[in-house]
Amino acid sequence: MRGATAGGARGATVEGVRIAWARTTPEERRDTGRALIRALAAELAPGSDVRVEQRCPVCGGPHGRPLLPQAPLLASAAYADPWVVVAVAREQDAAAIGIDVELEGAAPDLALLFAPEDPPDLRGWTAIEAALKADGRGLLVPPDQVRLSADGRATVPDGGEFLILPVAAAPGTIVTLALRRPSSGRPPTRRP
């Protein structure tokens, strides 16, 4: 399902996860991402406090995983200039989510991260980064330790398995969503 979201941004729903994207400038990308997250959060949890907080677990700066501490929601954000892409899901629908975006034709230098093996293609790289975001530790886990399987799953060491889903999003981008469904009978655990 595709359609317009708040502020002329575009959006989609994949496996119950709401995704939105918009063009932005490097200076406004975090503000644009937070605005998109708030708009999706207001749709998914009407009446909830949809304040977005970000605090880096390494340096304490105002960046890192977006959190909605007063709403029963999970969020993730990714940037590839000029695009910002966000994902928001209800905790009843997802135990963890992560999203990543790269520009088609981009050539990130991944050789050192994956040596002596060959680096993944862009779709594989977005899958790895999305899984690491869903895991909650990000690049604190060496990317070459993430295993991608042919059945559309990623396994993160000491972090478990995530469903990997391609997302048709902003033109000229490769977007991938990592998703873990909640375990039956247990509420999802929120990671910092």
Rank of each mutant, 00 (worst) to 15 (best):
T5G: 11
V14T: 13
V14C: 07
G16F: 08
R18W: 01
R18M: 01
A20Y: 00
R23M: 06
T24R: 01
P26H: 10
R29L: 04
R30I: 12
R30D: 13
D31H: 11
D31P: 00
G33L: 01
L36T: 03
L40F: 07
E43T: 08
G47R: 08
G47S: 08
R51N: 07
Q54K: 08
R55W: 04
P57R: 12
V58K: 10
G60F: 07
G60L: 08
G60I: 09
G61N: 14
G61L: 13
G61C: 14
G64P: 09
L67I: 01
L68G: 07
P69L: 12
Q70Y: 08
A71D: 06
P72W: 02
L73H: 05
A77N: 02
Y79C: 02
Y79L: 06
D81M: 00
P82I: 07
P82Q: 05
W83G: 00
W83L: 01
G98R: 09
D100Y: 09
A107H: 13
A107P: 00
P108L: 09
L113E: 05
P116K: 08
D118Q: 14
P119H: 06
R123V: 14
W125V: 04
A127W: 12
A130G: 09
A131H: 05
A131F: 09
K133I: 10
A134G: 15
G136A: 04
R137L: 13
G138P: 06
V141D: 00
P142W: 07
D144E: 15
R147M: 12
S149E: 15
G152M: 11
G152C: 10
R153V: 04
V156T: 08
G159M: 03
F162Q: 01
I164A: 07
I164Q: 06
P166W: 14
P166F: 15
A168L: 04
A169G: 14
A169L: 01
P171Y: 04
T173M: 02
T173S: 13
L177A: 04
L179H: 03
L179S: 02
S184Y: 05
G185V: 11
T189Y: 06
